[in-house]
Each structure stands twice: as C-alpha cells, then as structure tokens.
Simulated scan of single mutants.
Amino acid sequence: MTVSKRFIIAAKLLFAYFCISLLSGCQQQPEPQPMQEQLESAHKQQEADDLTLLCQKLEKNMLEINNQRTTFALEQVNQDLKVCLPLQPLEKQKALLQRSNQMYRNFLHVERSASQQLTFEQYAFDMAQHPTIHQSHFEQFTLRDQYLLKHQGQAYVELVDATAAEAHYRRSPDYLAKIFAPYMPDAERIFIENLALQNVEPAFSDQTLLIEPFEIVRRALFWEDYIHTYPKSSYLKDAKHLLYQYKIFLFKGLKNTPVSSNYSDPMDVKVSTLEELKKASKFKRSELALQSSLFLQFLEMSPEQRRKYAAGQTGLSPWQQMELYINLRNPAPNYQKDCFSDSVCLE
C-alpha cells in the first residue's frame, strides 16, 4: 500500500473518530433543571403570600365601604370574606362578622329630608300593594335611594316591606348564613342558619303577631333543644332570650294579639293556642311541655286557689299569677339586642 493510500485511510479513520466523539458530545444530558416539586412549592408560596396580603387588607376594605360605594364593591368584599374566613379562628370570624354588620349599616345609610322620607315610605307601601316603580315618586328620592332601589337583591340588599313600622333597607338574613356560617363551628353555624330562616319574614309588627301558634311552638322547641345540645355556644345567651320571647308569644301574645283577656278559664284562650298547648303538654323531657301542662292546670283553678298559690303576693294581674304558676322567668332582664331582624342578635 502506498504512502498516499495509507494517509487517506488514516485521515478517514480520524474523521470518523471525530464525528463519533462529536455525536457523543451532542447527546450528553443537559444541565439539571429545577425539580417539579420546587416549582410547585414556589407557586404555592406565592399563592400563600397573595392570600395573606388579601386577608390583611380585608378589614381595611370593609371599613372603606360607605353610602357612596356600589354593590359591586360590596360584593367584592364578600368574595374576599369567603376566601379568608376558612383560615380564621372563631374569635376572628366573629370580629369580622361584627365588622360586616357595621359595613352594611354604613352602606345602607340614607340622609333624607322630611318630605323625602314621606315619599319613600309611600313608595314602600305602594310597592307592597303593587310592585311597580312609580316614576313620579322615584324622581323625588335622594340619589342614594334611587341607586339602592335599582339594585335591590344585589349584595344581599333588600327593602323591608310596608308591614314594618317604618320602611327601611336591611341586609338579608341569608347573608350571614351563606357568607359566614359555612366556615364556623357547628354551634354557631346552626344558630345562624336557623335564625336566618326564622327571620326571612317578620314574626310580629306593630304589637301584632304574624305567625301561628304552631310555628311559635316549633321555634320554642328548637331553641330549647339548641340550648341543651350546645351549652358552650357563644350564642347561648341569645338562644335563651329567643326561647323566652317565643314563650311570651305563646302564653301571653302581644298587645294587639293577646292569647287571653284574663286567663279565667279555657274558653278565655284563643282556640288555636289552646290546641297547640294541649299537644305541647304531651312532649317528653321538655320544659315547654311542663309549662304548657301547668298553663292548662292554671286555667282550671279557681280564684281562691290562685290567691293561695300566690302565697300572700297581692295586686298581681292574671298574667302575673299565671307567669308565677308556670315559673316563666326572664333569663336576662336587661337584654337589649334585637333577635328578630337578622341571622344574629344585633345590638
């Protein structure tokens, strides 16, 4: 083999070796990239930081809601509450709940002149009779009234109907039941959800009961059971007040819808009330059942028996005699909250 041929073969072998080495180098693994777990962790940390910031700003945003803001701004705060409430302990949740009460009071506040107030109440009455907007009235409203009336039903805003003593806006009882209750302990959740259902429609107006004795008994039994089931509830005092109030409705009534004139005998008691008391007296392990039974006994007592039981207490009215006999006591005489407008008892 000539030198030139050897040189050519050697050159080819060298070229082949070079190509193999080059190819091998091209197939080397790339530099290690961040692991998927690290990327996910960083993403989660960013989300957590964003959520922390959102929740830190929440109370400030709630305080900024006033009667110049829109329902859109209110709904945005409510969405933020849904995000942040599951992360908070009960005490913080209740603090935010109180803040939400003030937030809605600020949002629904309207300054009116006397003539504007009269026009507004007339409109509310007309709406109760014929749910249409009277343009001649509408133009006389304050700008805030015009806005709120156009946006009824949004952000849990509603106009209380004309059965109320004075027409006014309110936050729907559904609000706390849907925004707060799902994230609270059972005792608080059940209190809010049930009071919301009870207060969708008013129980009374202008010293007149608007619910039947059957419903009064049902609600009284619910609150009695709630007190026994959740003795450590943060709403225990409110539940006891509600139970007492429903007993007052059942055994006494209100000024314009009294249960009896003087409790002289069974004929002096509303028939519907008497029937429900007879049914209630047969329940087992219930304080309401015992008091219903005692009430029925009291109706059969003579004036002499009643005086004897009063043990020397003179000047008692028939109601006071009956109250004494069935041992109906107010658990908190200085209680000042309103438990018949919302899904919590309001100051």
Rank of each mutant, 00 (worst) to 15 (best):
V3Q: 13
V3H: 11
I9W: 10
L13I: 08
L13H: 13
L14E: 11
Q33H: 05
P34Q: 05
Q36F: 11
E37K: 10
E37T: 06
Q46E: 15
D49I: 12
L51Y: 01
T52S: 13
K57G: 13
E59P: 08
K60E: 13
N61G: 07
M62C: 07
L63G: 11
N67C: 10
F72T: 06
L74C: 10
V77L: 03
D80E: 14
C84T: 02
L85F: 05
P86N: 02
L87M: 10
Q88L: 15
P89G: 02
P89L: 08
Q93T: 05
N101C: 07
N101R: 05
Q102I: 09
Q102A: 13
Y104P: 01
R105L: 13
F107E: 01
F107L: 10
T119L: 07
T119S: 10
E121A: 11
E121G: 01
Y123T: 04
Q129F: 09
H134T: 09
F141A: 00
R144S: 08
G153Y: 12
G153F: 11
A155W: 03
Y156M: 08
L159F: 06
T163M: 07
A165C: 05
H168E: 10
R170A: 14
Y175G: 00
A177S: 15
I179Q: 02
P182K: 03
Y183Q: 03
M184L: 15
A187R: 04
E188H: 04
E188L: 05
E188V: 02
E193D: 10
L195A: 04
L197A: 15
E201P: 00
A203T: 05
S205H: 09
P213S: 03
E215G: 01
E215W: 09
V217D: 03
R219E: 01
E224P: 09
D225Y: 03
I227S: 06
I227M: 10
H228C: 01
T229M: 08
K232T: 14
S233N: 09
S234Y: 10
Y235S: 06
L236T: 01
L242G: 04
L250A: 01
L254I: 02
N256E: 13
P258L: 05
P258K: 03
S260G: 09
S260Y: 06
S261C: 04
N262R: 12
D265V: 02
M267P: 00
D268N: 15
V269D: 00
L274F: 15
L277I: 07
K278R: 15
K278P: 05
K282G: 05
K284M: 10
K284W: 07
R285S: 14
S286R: 08
L288F: 13
Q291K: 14
S293V: 00
E300F: 02
P303N: 11
A310V: 10
A311T: 04
P318D: 01
W319V: 03
Q321V: 00
R329P: 00
P333G: 04
P333N: 03
P333L: 02
P333R: 01
D338Q: 09
C339I: 02
E347S: 14
